[in-house]
Simulated assay, not measured.
Amino acid sequence: MSLKLAKFQIGQVVKHRLFPFRGVIFDVDPVYANTEEWWNAIPEHVRPRKDQPFYHLLAENDETEYVAYVSEQNLLIDDSETPIRHPQLGDFFEAKIDGVYTPKERMSH
């Protein structure tokens, strides 16, 4: 299996292709890296392939904010310019520049 380069980057705002939510990417897995239980809970007719990048999103819809794990094939760029309101946004990102949130510098010791 050859690894595919991620189409989206950390800090980009994306929306789901099928479901009404959007979010900002805070991490990327080169291939599926969640549990089999999570995988099997996805209805088979919409279940994505495992051999593609999967993105961790600070996600939101009209009702709530949450963390989502989404396959690359189900994401599109969100160019709405609407700010992300997720309460954890400040834990991961600083300013938004040209539509992309800037990741905070990680402290190491």
Score class of each variant (00 low, 15 high):
residue 89 L to H: 03
residue 102 T to M: 11
residue 108 S to G: 10
residue 72 E to M: 02
residue 13 V to M: 06
residue 38 W to H: 15
residue 46 V to C: 01
residue 95 A to M: 15
residue 15 K to S: 12
residue 16 H to I: 00
residue 8 F to R: 08
residue 50 K to P: 06
residue 90 G to T: 11
residue 34 N to H: 10
residue 58 L to E: 13
residue 73 Q to Y: 01
residue 4 K to H: 10
residue 69 Y to L: 13
residue 54 F to I: 07
residue 47 R to Y: 09
residue 87 P to R: 03
residue 18 L to R: 04
residue 59 A to P: 00
residue 55 Y to R: 00
residue 79 D to E: 14
residue 36 E to F: 09
residue 106 R to A: 09
residue 93 F to P: 10
residue 86 H to A: 11
residue 2 S to E: 15
residue 74 N to S: 04
residue 40 N to C: 13
residue 38 W to N: 15
residue 16 H to G: 00
residue 78 D to A: 14
residue 24 V to W: 01
residue 101 Y to M: 06
residue 8 F to C: 07
residue 20 P to Q: 06
residue 5 L to S: 06
residue 80 S to V: 02
residue 61 N to Q: 05
residue 71 S to W: 00
residue 8 F to Y: 12
residue 82 T to Q: 14
residue 66 Y to V: 02
residue 36 E to G: 11
residue 107 M to C: 04
residue 97 I to L: 13
residue 24 V to I: 04
residue 74 N to A: 01
residue 37 E to G: 12
residue 106 R to Y: 08
residue 15 K to N: 11
residue 32 Y to F: 07
residue 19 F to I: 00
residue 78 D to R: 14
residue 81 E to L: 07
residue 30 P to W: 03
residue 31 V to R: 12
residue 71 S to E: 05
residue 92 F to D: 10
residue 75 L to K: 03
residue 109 H to Y: 12
residue 98 D to G: 08
residue 91 D to C: 12
residue 7 K to C: 09
residue 106 R to G: 01
residue 30 P to D: 08
residue 40 N to L: 15
residue 2 S to L: 15
residue 105 E to Q: 15
residue 24 V to Q: 01
residue 68 A to G: 09
residue 93 F to W: 09
residue 99 G to D: 08
residue 5 L to D: 08
residue 14 V to D: 08
residue 64 T to P: 08
residue 80 S to N: 04
residue 66 Y to D: 09
residue 71 S to V: 04
residue 40 N to G: 13
residue 84 I to L: 14
residue 65 E to N: 13
residue 54 F to A: 06
residue 28 V to E: 06
residue 52 Q to V: 06
residue 22 R to S: 05
residue 44 E to Q: 14
residue 33 A to E: 15
residue 1 M to F: 11
residue 17 R to S: 11
residue 87 P to I: 01
residue 37 E to S: 15
residue 90 G to W: 10
residue 79 D to F: 07
residue 90 G to A: 13
residue 12 Q to K: 09
residue 24 V to C: 04
residue 82 T to R: 13
residue 54 F to C: 07
residue 14 V to G: 06
residue 22 R to A: 02
residue 3 L to T: 02
residue 71 S to I: 02
residue 50 K to T: 04
